[in-house]
Computed example of a mutant assay.
Amino acid sequence: MQLSVDPSSATPPYEQIRARIAELARSGELPTGLRLPTVRALAEELELSAGTVARAYRELEADGVVETHGRRGTLIASTGDTAHRLAAEAATEYAERVRRLGLSRGDALAALDTALRVAFPEEQEN
């Protein structure tokens, strides 16, 4: 696995690591069950602090991209089902929260549409 971090980027190093590993897992370049380097080994390879790599791994685990198995290490999870399940859970939580806030369905959808436009600027129509 080839990872690099651009120190001049506005994106924090942990996020660069998280995004790249997630991308490689989604594409299948990092197959399910593949063991990732230890936090310390990857930190040394990238010349970063172990805390930076640990944060990337924690965020990947929270997103369901990796699973941590103690001595067996950090492994790439089966992301297809996990990603959809986590997205459905987040959508349900959002729907419940906007309902408690008293927003209409239209207002909730407008807020969600705005958030998605910010999250996916590359998909904006001209």
Rank of each mutant, 00 (worst) to 15 (best):
residue 74 T to F: 05
residue 47 E to K: 08
residue 48 L to M: 02
residue 63 D to P: 00
residue 93 E to G: 15
residue 83 A to E: 05
residue 27 S to T: 14
residue 88 A to E: 13
residue 84 H to D: 14
residue 113 D to P: 08
residue 12 P to L: 08
residue 79 T to V: 04
residue 94 Y to T: 14
residue 7 P to Y: 03
residue 30 L to T: 06
residue 53 V to D: 05
residue 77 A to Y: 00
residue 121 P to T: 06
residue 46 L to N: 11
residue 115 A to E: 08
residue 121 P to S: 01
residue 115 A to S: 07
residue 24 L to N: 12
residue 81 D to C: 14
residue 46 L to P: 02
residue 8 S to E: 14
residue 49 S to I: 00
residue 4 S to D: 06
residue 116 L to M: 07
residue 83 A to K: 00
residue 87 A to D: 03
residue 104 S to A: 13
residue 11 T to Y: 06
residue 103 L to I: 13
residue 51 G to N: 09
residue 80 G to H: 06
residue 69 H to A: 02
residue 104 S to H: 07
residue 23 E to G: 08
residue 80 G to Y: 04
residue 102 G to F: 02
residue 102 G to Y: 02
residue 108 A to M: 04
residue 1 M to N: 04
residue 110 A to T: 08
residue 60 L to Y: 00
residue 110 A to K: 01
residue 17 I to L: 05
residue 54 A to R: 12
residue 4 S to F: 09
residue 112 L to V: 06
residue 93 E to L: 15
residue 7 P to Q: 11
residue 38 T to M: 13
residue 45 E to I: 08
residue 62 A to R: 09
residue 49 S to R: 06
residue 18 R to G: 05
residue 87 A to E: 00
residue 104 S to N: 15
residue 21 I to P: 04
residue 105 R to N: 10
residue 80 G to T: 02
residue 10 A to N: 04
residue 86 L to C: 04
residue 29 E to N: 08
residue 90 A to N: 10
residue 90 A to R: 12
residue 14 Y to A: 00
residue 62 A to Q: 07
residue 34 L to K: 14
residue 115 A to F: 05
residue 81 D to T: 15
residue 26 R to F: 11
residue 83 A to Y: 01
residue 103 L to Y: 06
residue 107 D to I: 14
residue 124 Q to S: 15
residue 39 V to W: 05
residue 74 T to K: 14
residue 55 R to W: 12
residue 44 E to R: 03
residue 93 E to M: 15
residue 50 A to S: 10
residue 3 L to I: 03
residue 97 R to N: 07
residue 87 A to Q: 10
residue 124 Q to H: 13
residue 63 D to R: 01
residue 28 G to D: 08
residue 28 G to A: 02
residue 117 R to D: 07
residue 5 V to A: 04
residue 73 G to V: 03
residue 72 R to W: 15
residue 124 Q to Y: 10
residue 15 E to F: 15
residue 25 A to K: 08
residue 78 S to L: 13
residue 2 Q to S: 01
residue 105 R to Y: 13
residue 61 E to W: 01
residue 121 P to I: 01
residue 15 E to H: 14
residue 1 M to P: 03
residue 53 V to Y: 11
residue 91 A to C: 10
residue 31 P to H: 00
residue 113 D to L: 06
residue 71 R to N: 13
residue 112 L to Q: 08
residue 117 R to G: 04
residue 125 E to M: 05
residue 80 G to A: 12
residue 124 Q to I: 09
residue 80 G to V: 10
residue 87 A to N: 02
residue 69 H to M: 02
residue 68 T to E: 11
residue 77 A to I: 00
residue 101 L to Y: 09
residue 109 L to W: 15
residue 103 L to P: 06
